[in-house]
């Protein structure tokens, strides 16, 4: 498939935004049961603002791949059948939940709904946060299923697609939370860094599994089934036109095989070892009480985000659409 940059940007930005929100809510939940030090409301409010910026940035990016952005509101109507429609509903719901979560923290509404005595002030934010976390996972599911539900794009049609979307988003969100905590809540740095390593290791396993799976895939559609002629040697002599068409542009990444393969190694390097090394460097600086640890964490996030852009590009480019069988020879 031809990777649309707007979709690459959309999926990586909202993934990081969802992950960051999950990180914030995780810290608050841990603090509620006194496993972590409770943070100032400013920490949650500003963190929600960053998550909100990422989510809205992704939403804006998504408009650029639409032919008619002014009709985008219509895309919420077919949620019964379309995962894309479901995503269109869940993404604004997620944005709303993060906004409310941040707002209640910012205004310091010390409202207790259930009256549970916890270490954090009020349980309203915990309830909103739980809803937001639910939306975050639902959004990962929708985003992943948009691709996983197309059964003849065999590279995508796997549960690994959903798992990878979830884990990549969460890993980048927790890494961003580590960098953020280095500035505002040094007490949470180790907690976030540990989770970042765990999630990054997990997604390394699942992404490697999907790469191995894709390398072993045998295409179900062949030229024989495409035109219905049972002959071992079929060659296309003409695709019916000399110029290009939507079919020759949309379904092939259009880069040289060398570049295509190198992008795989670029993302495998930038997403996994580089951020882990920078994370380790940041943690060493943090242990020595050096201020510079925040720079190392920020660099780790930047490197991983660039890597995720490459990963998403490769995810799209690797999918081989069966329609390409009909467009192999110009004439």
């Amino acid at each position: 498939m031809h990777p649309a940059f707007s979709v690459v940007l959309l999926t990586t930005l909202i993934g990081a935004g969802q992950g960051l929100f999950l990180a914030l809510f995780t810290a608050q939940s841990y603090a509620a049961v006194e496993l972590l030090p409770a943070q100032d409301t400013r920490f949650y409010a500003l963190g929600s603002l960053i998550a909100l910026a990422l989510l809205i940035g992704g939403l804006i990016a998504s408009f650029f791949h639409l032919g008619h952005p002014e009709r985008a509101w219509r895309s919420a109507t077919r949620w019964r059948t379309s995962w894309l429609s479901r995503e269109v509903i869940v993404l604004p719901a997620m944005i709303g939940a993060v906004f409310m979560y941040g707002l209640v923290h910012w205004l310091k509404w010390d409202l207790s709904v259930f009256g549970i005595q916890t270490n954090v002030s009020g349980d309203l934010t915990l309830i909103i946060g739980a809803g937001g976390a639910l939306f975050a996972f639902a959004l990962f599911l929708c985003t992943g299923m948009i691709y996983a539900c197309i059964k003849f794009l065999q590279e995508w049609a796997s549960w690994l697609t959903v798992v990878n979307y979830t884990l990549f988003g969460t890993a980048s969100g927790f890494l961003l939370a580590t960098a953020y905590a280095a500035y505002l809540a040094p007490g949470l740095v180790k907690f976030y860094a540990a989770w970042t390593v765990i999630i990054t290791a997990a997604v390394f396993i699942t992404r490697a599994a999907s790469l191995i799976r894709n390398a072993r895939l045998k295409p179900k559609s062949t030229l024989q089934t495409a035109i219905g002629v049972r002959h071992q040697r079929i060659a296309q002599k003409s695709q019916g036109f000399m110029g290009g068409s939507f079919n020759t542009r949309e379904f092939f990444h259009g880069v040289k095989p060398v570049l295509f393969k190198s992008i795989k190694w670029v993302f495998l390097t930038l997403v996994f070892p580089v951020p882990i090394f920078l994370l380790w460097a940041g943690l060493s600086l943090h242990a020595h009480g050096l201020e510079q640890n925040a720079y190392a964490f920020s660099a780790a996030f930047a490197a991983q985000y660039l890597g995720l852009l490459a990963e998403r590009w490769f995810f799209f480019a690797q999918a081989n659409h069966p329609q390409n069988l009909y467009y192999q020879t110009v004439s």
């Binding site: 952005p69 219509r74 948009i146 939507f246 379904f251 009909y326």
Partner: peptide, 26 residues
Amino acid sequence: DLCIGCKYCSWACPYGMREIDEHQKV
């Protein structure tokens, strides 16, 4: 009049029978 030009249906057609109109964007 309803199409937003997201191209998702063209991805979902294994035969490549759908084409976006580059000017009307549907």
